[in-house]
Structure formats: structure tokens, C-alpha cells
């Protein structure tokens, strides 16, 4: 199925959670903020939130310094 990932269409496996999707991308969820359908999802809910066709997902990666 297709979702919009960081602004671009992307084919992903159906019925996977956001956590599984991040794992496939090898992203460290401690350093990313995930926005699903315009809501920021706390990391403890990444595993229980399942992606659906047409969803929008923004993954913002953070680096240290300040």
C-alpha cells in the first residue's frame, strides 16, 4: 500500500506499525520525532500505531548541539 512519507509517495507493506517501519529504515527512534496524520506520536505509542493506506508520516531526525 502507499503512504506519504516525508512528503513523497512510498510503497510499504500493509498493516505494519510505525515502529516496524522505522526498524526497516534502521532509524533510532530515540532521535526522531514522528508525526502521523499531523499528530506527533510519543515513542511509547509507535509500536501500537498501525499505518493505513494514504496516511502521511513525517519522520524528523535530530542531531545534538545547542
Amino acid at each position: 500500500m502507499e503512504i506519504i512519507f516525508n512528503g513523497k509517495p512510498r510503497e510499504i507493506q500493509a498493516s505494519i506499525s510505525i515502529q516496524e517501519f522505522l526498524d526497516q529504515l534502521r532509524l533510532d527512534c530515540l532521535q526522531v520525532v514522528v508525526e502521523h496524520n499531523r499528530n506527533i506520536i510519543p515513542r511509547q505509542r509507535l509500536a501500537e500505531t498501525v499505518l493505513n493506506r494514504g496516511d502521511t508520516l513525517e519522520v524528523i531526525h535530530f542531531v545534538g548541539g545547542g
Binding site: L30, V32, V33, N39, I40, P42, F62, G66
Partner: peptide, 20 residues
């Protein structure tokens, strides 16, 4: 305005969850 990336993420997740 934190230094550590993980702390930045923690703050954003926490504040956004309470005050979206």
C-alpha cells in the same frame, strides 16, 4: 534549546502530546 538529541525528542513529544 537542549543540547542532546534525545532530550530534544523527549521535550517535543511530551509538550506536543499535552498541548497539540
Amino acid at each position: 534549546a537542549f543540547d542532546q538529541a534525545q532530550q530534544k525528542v523527549m521535550l517535543i513529544e511530551t509538550f506536543a502530546a499535552r498541548f497539540p
